[in-house]
Design a protein around this nucleic acid. Structure first.
Lengths: 222, 222
DNA sequence: TCAGTTTTGTAACAATTGTTACATGTTGGC
DNA sequence: GCCAACATGTAACAATTGTTACAAAACTGA
C-alpha cells in the first residue's frame, strides 16, 4: 500500500518508508467495491478522506429524468473529492460509483489532521491539491464570464501568445475540441474566427493564427 | 494584534493567548499602505500569507483599455487570496489595492506551514477557508453551466423549494438583483418567468411563486 | 394622503448563437 | 495516386437573449 501511495499526488516526494511512518498510530480502513457499487451518495456527509488504491471510479450526476451525466473519472491512486472534506458544505457534490473492482482507503478527517501535522510534505501536498482545484475553478469561471464566443477566443489566443511570447500562435486542438472546451458549437466558433479575420484583427489559416491588432483583440473581450 | 486576529476566520476559536503562542518563534512582518497603494500586482508570485489587520483593500482587474473592474472588497481582519498561496499557479489573480490607510500582516509560506503544524485549529480553519472557496466556485460553475435563463431560474427556485419543503416560494431578492446574480438582464429574466407562468409550469405573482408542474420544471433545466 | 422612488410587466427590434446541411480541404494508410 | 475519415468553411433559418423604452404597480417617507 505504501508504495502505491507514494505515486499519489498527496504523497508526492514522500518515500514509502516515510509513508509507513506517517500511518503509524493512525486509524484507517480499506474497503472493496464491485463494479456499479455506489461508494458515496450525493449530499452524504464527507467524513473521511477516501483514496482510490485500485480500480477506477466515476463521479456521476443524475438529473431527475433518470439521465446520467458523467462528470469525471478518477483512477488509482487518487483522492476522492478532497476539496469537500473541509469547508462549510461537507457533502459529496455527486454520486461516486465504482466502475471496476475497486479498493478504497478511508481515513477519518480527524486522523488526516494528525497526519498533516506530523508531516509537512503531506500538509503542503494537500494544500496544493485543494488550492489547485480552487485555482482551476477560478480560471474556468473567469473564462465563462466572457459572454461572447469572440471574447472567449480572444482570451484564449492572447493567453497562448503570452506564453509563447509571439504574435503567431498555433491552436493545439481541432476546432471541434476547442468548441467543446468553450461550450459552444463548432460552426459558431468557426464563424467567430472568420469574423475576427474579416475585421482584420487576426489572420487565421487553419490552426495558424497571427494576431494583427492586439488592442482590438483586447477590446473584443470587453 | 493577537486580539484582532482572534476575530479573523483563520483564527476562529483560538484565544488571543493561544495566538501569541502560535506566533512564538515565527518570522513575520507588518507593512503599512496609503490609499491607492498597490499591495500586490496581478501575476506576482504569492510568497506570503497576507492578512488585512486594519483598513480596506480591493481586488481590481484592469482591462487594457484602462477600465477598472472592481472585483471584491476585503476588510480587516481577513486573509488576502489564501487559495493562491499553495497550488500550481502561485500568482495573484488580480491587483490588490489599498483603499484606506491599511496595515498588512505578512507571513512567509514556510512559516505558515510551521504554524499550522503547531496548532490544529489553525490548520483546520485554513483548510475550511480554501475548501469553502473551492466549494463556492464549484457551485457558481454548476449554476453557470445551465445555459438558458429558464434553466437557471428553475434550478434556483427548486433549491428554494427544497430548503423550505414547500411548493410555494418567495423570491428573496428583487428581479433586478436576481438578474444580476444570474448574469442576465432584468427584462430577459422577467420574460423567462412570464413564459414559465404562461406554460403553466409555475404561477408567478410578484415575488410569490407556486410550482405547479415539478416534472416540467426539472425538464426545463435539461 | 401624496409625491417620488423602486419594482415589475411588456413590447419592438437588434445581436448572438444554435441547428442543420452541404461543400471543400487535409491527411494517412494502402 | 487514391480513397476514407476527419477537419474546416459556409449558408439559411430558428431560438434565445440583449437593448431600449415606456407604462403600470408597489412601496416609502414626510
Amino acid at each position: 500500500m505504501n508504495e502505491l501511495l507514494s505515486n499519489c499526488t498527496l504523497f508526492k516526494g514522500i518515500s514509502p518508508r516515510e509513508v509507513l511512518n506517517i500511518f503509524d498510530g493512525i486509524f484507517y480502513q480499506t474497503k472493496f467495491y464491485e463494479p456499479r457499487d455506489i461508494i458515496a451518495y450525493q449530499d452524504d456527509n464527507v467524513e473521511h478522506l477516501m483514496i482510490v488504491l485500485k480500480g477506477i471510479t466515476r463521479g456521476e450526476m443524475i438529473d431527475l429524468n433518470g439521465k446520467i451525466v458523467i462528470i469525471e473519472e478518477i483512477e488509482s491512486p487518487r483522492p476522492l473529492a478532497p476539496a469537500f472534506i473541509f469547508g462549510q458544505n461537507n457533502t459529496y457534490p455527486v454520486n461516486i460509483v465504482s466502475q471496476t473492482k475497486t479498493e478504497i482507503l478511508k481515513i477519518p478527517k480527524s486522523e488526516l489532521v494528525k497526519m498533516m501535522q506530523k508531516n509537512d510534505k503531506l500538509l503542503v501536498n494537500f494544500m496544493n491539491n485543494i488550492s489547485g482545484r480552487a485555482q482551476f475553478l477560478s480560471q474556468k469561471l473567469k473564462f465563462l464570464s466572457f459572454h461572447s464566443i469572440k471574447g472567449k477566443f480572444a482570451f484564449y489566443i492572447l493567453n497562448l501568445a503570452k506564453n509563447s511570447n509571439s504574435n503567431y500562435v498555433t491552436l493545439p486542438f481541432s476546432q471541434s475540441k476547442l468548441a467543446e472546451l468553450f461550450g459552444v458549437t463548432r460552426p459558431s466558433l468557426s464563424r467567430a474566427i472568420r469574423e475576427l479575420h474579416n475585421d482584420n484583427i487576426i489572420r487565421a489559416e487553419a490552426k495558424n493564427i497571427q494576431i494583427i491588432n492586439t488592442y482590438e483583440l483586447y477590446e473584443v473581450m470587453r
